[in-house]
Amino acid sequence: MHIIVCVKQVPDTTNVRINPETNTLMREGVESIMNPFDEYALEEALRLKDAHGARVTVITMGPPQADVVLREAMARGADDGVLLTDRAFAGADTLATSYAIAQAIRKLTSRADLILFGKQAIDGDTAQVGPGVSEFLNCALVTYVKSICVEGDRFTVETQMDEGVDVIEGRLPAVMTVVKEAAVPRFASLSGWMAAKKAAIPRWGAQDVGAAPEACGLNGSPTKVVKIFAPPVKTGGTRMDGREEPSAAVEQILKLLHEKGVA
């Protein structure tokens, strides 16, 4: 079985702030991390590898330094990694990104059994690239997966829907996106890190994967960002100090709840 896990390097958005004077992102000191949801996708792949034996390949698209997330995945147990990097990919929206990744998967193997994504990336939050890749590769799509069982070429998965859990069956190959209700991601071992640090990671550009230039990056992106601005700031209402007299605070809360017809 060949499992491909698509991962993304993202800024740790918990630390990104807007500079109020210039209205720009303050990126100084903001760490780059593996998209947290992708860690769950990787863990599902590694569990299948533990259970059945499998080759797990991680792919990322990004700047040259994005190889760090591939090494992190390999330190945890992925077998190999591919870095998709090219200026031609810059400015890609979800359509152009899905196309580039699908092309890379095609070059990598004629038969990927399972292609896993995190449910969404925490910087873009679109959740669109996994489904987009399934469309380009013309294979089954299951989203919001929390556990995966594979037997031969058939799979059974549990998916976390808005109102409960569905159990879904199908045939490989398939694209799946994984939620954080899945198994807790493992840590990398020291020996894993040592090996991953030295591993050779091929870098593929648009030509390497046979991607048409007009379908890549900005040129291949139907959506255009026309404006970027800071969100409006809400100023807040009544403030009170309830440390001395909590009962006065409780009174205020109850008064407001009563006004709103709740208590």
Partner: peptide, 22 residues
């Protein structure tokens, strides 16, 4: 929604058009 997000992204790719989430 769980359903809207998933298949809409496929529809947009098949139509080769743009989709903006959320």
């Amino acid at each position: 929604t769980a359903i809207g997000r998933a298949f809409f992204a496929k529809v947009a790719v098949r139509a080769r058009t743009g989709l903006t989430a959320d």
